[in-house]
């Protein structure tokens, strides 16, 4: 049997998820010029939120999604005003170490509270599947893809057409000019940081019925998200979508066509990071960023 259609559809479904995973990081960097190294832990918190709501109260992850997105936004808002705002104008080293430290602390609070055991949510659609032609479609993955597409589309629409969305883009493009236009830059920063955390929490909710949930799940996902954002170009949403598709296709096809491919696929993100920094550091669609 030809495995190409199967690999192709798997790659598309994965790409949707990767887009959602990386778009929050991309927004945060584009606006605040900070790579939030705690972003992976937001994903982890979202997954645990979905898990506990499902296990304790039987709430379907798709229903808890909006709830947790609001909670994620609130967490981001609090984190911004509590700590991140203090290092906005500081050297990069402060920002890197601060967000790294926050992530480390969150991760280990999770280990203490919930142990390192692997868990997952198990709604009915997580394991059922249907066959279309040569392709096996797991309903959980299709659902996750659909949820991801809806949220990324909502983000793009918000940035494109709403008043605050346009203000956000203005700040990303030129902070000083935005100030002169009467935009409250600090409010936009807090908003973007909140939205960026909310998107990561949403990623966590969506992967809760696809992957196993552990306190350690965030870090590898953060590294992949960084690879995607660098590949597409720091600060470009369209580039991020492109980067997500590139990574998803590379990973899926390597794991289908190479011997022991699923193990090697885990290394692709790192090869891409090194490669893109060698060849075209600003990424496919990125703006030149002074670092």
């Amino acid at each position: 049997m030809d495995i190409f259609p199967q690999a192709f559809s798997d790659a598309i479904l994965l790409a949707g998820l990767y887009t959602l995973m990386a778009v929050g990081l991309s927004l945060g960097f584009g606006v605040l010029r900070i790579i939030n190294f705690a972003q992976g832990e937001m994903i982890m918190l979202g997954a645990y939120g979905a898990f506990w709501l499902f296990t304790l109260m039987g709430v379907d992850p798709l229903i808890s999604l909006p709830l947790l997105v609001v909670a994620g936004f609130a967490l981001g808002w609090v984190l911004f005003h509590g700590v991140v705002a203090k290092v906005l104008d500081a050297p990069h080293i402060n920002q890197i170490l601060l967000t790294f430290g926050i992530g480390l602390a969150i991760q280990h609070v999770a280990i203490i509270l919930w142990t390192g055991n692997a868990r997952s949510t198990t709604p009915d659609y997580a394991t059922t599947s249907s066959v279309v032609g040569d392709v096996l479609l797991v309903h959980g993955r299709v659902t996750a893809f659909a949820a991801a597409v809806v949220m990324v589309a909502a983000l793009i629409a918000w940035l494109q057409w709403s008043e605050t969305g346009r203000a956000t883009r203005a700040v990303a493009e030129n902070r000083s000019a935005a100030v002169l236009m009467g935009i409250d830059v600090n409010r936009i920063y807090a908003l973007s940081f909140g939205v960026s955390c909310a998107l990561s929490v949403a990623t966590g909710v969506v992967v809760s019925f696809i992957l196993t949930i552990t306190p350690f799940m965030g870090f590898p996902m953060l590294v992949k998200a960084i690879a995607i954002v660098i590949l597409g170009g720091l600060g470009s949403i369209a580039g991020t979508v492109l980067g997500a598709f590139a990574l998803a296709f590379a990973e899926t096809f390597v794991s289908y066509y190479l011997p022991e491919g699923s193990g090697w696929a885990e290394g692709i993100a790192f090869v891409l990071i090194i490669g893109i920094l060698l060849v075209r550091p600003r990424g496919i669609l990125g703006q030149a960023v002074e670092t």
Partner: peptide
């Protein structure tokens, strides 16, 4: 040499990637 003129965030990310990449190689 790889990171060339890039500092700050890019350098941090590259070292992160190098360590995770080497780990994958060691496993594989």
């Amino acid at each position: 040499l790889i990171t060339g003129r890039m500092r700050g965030i890019y350098f941090a990310i590259t070292t992160l990637a190098a360590s995770e990449g080497l780990r994958v190689i060691a496993v594989m």
